[in-house]
Write a protein that binds this DNA or RNA. Sequence first.
DNA 1: CAGATAATTGAGATTTAATCTCAATTACGA
DNA 2: TCGTAATTGAGATTAAATCTCAATTATCTG
Lengths: 144, 144
Amino acid sequence: MKKKTAHEQFIAYLRSEGKNITPERLHILDAVLNQKAHFKIDDMIEKMSCAKKRVSRATVYRSIKTIENAGLIKYIRSINDEKIYEVQKEHHDHMICESCGKIFEFHDKDLETLQDLICESHGFTPKRHTMKIFGICEKCKKDD
Amino acid sequence: MKKKTAHEQFIAYLRSEGKNITPERLHILDAVLNQKAHFKIDDMIEKMSCAKKRVSRATVYRSIKTIENAGLIKYIRSINDEKIYEVQKEHHDHMICESCGKIFEFHDKDLETLQDLICESHGFTPKRHTMKIFGICEKCKKDD
DNA sequence: CAGATAATTGAGATTTAATCTCAATTACGA
DNA sequence: TCGTAATTGAGATTAAATCTCAATTATCTG
């Protein structure tokens, strides 16, 4: 069973939901996948309105939601009313520096295991989780 | 050193910030503290517009923000554009049922310890964190 | 492949939470 | 008690997100 690309995943999702495969949706997916890590909707709208194939604001909003439902991107948080999304890679959690605003990703197997145990003891079936640790990063500590 | 009430904490905060202690702010604090657990801003606005002492929408927004900065309430999440806040008790994390929308609180000492260890290994100084586990609660599992 | 049908798009209007404005009021230190 | 600075209320404003609907496009069927 070879691993599906994000592109293939998206198309499979659209098919499974009976949604059409439109060039607009694929363009937006491409633009999103080209993002290094985190992006804002507004940036995507601007990007798509300058691109060779223009896509309207309404469609950007609609498609971002579709791509999110397909599990390919994830909403992280808002910073002054600007939603920040990220492209989904392997699952990871976040450390957010309150000084420079930078978002660090980390993953810890023990943490995941412990979470499952906690859920089990509460009769709760976990599907997914988010964890954000706010504090000060190494660099900002030194820059003081 | 006796423990301060939320009321006292708030007044101490206002003093420390050079802010005035106004009846509006205290009324809103009272209303907020009277909430069992979680509340929406809109509910507060409605509550305050019917109360003996009316408080305007703008002031509710302003005061909620002040009370949040004082650390007495905390923003949890949005559900269709409605922000949900909660009164701060001891620190705890959340399990959110995707079926009924109910929010469960839990606290686990091992989880906290593990988080601190992870941060340490990344040179990150944690101040606070949020953790949300999404899934299906015990009751909804049975109701299937 | 053509024609029918349902989904999707674009553009601008609309919605709505949150913020802003500013004159009137109020808290508070001196 | 007075003067100053902070705060409030009411309505205007802002801006992200959604909605509307006619025109377009994807997909299915034979």
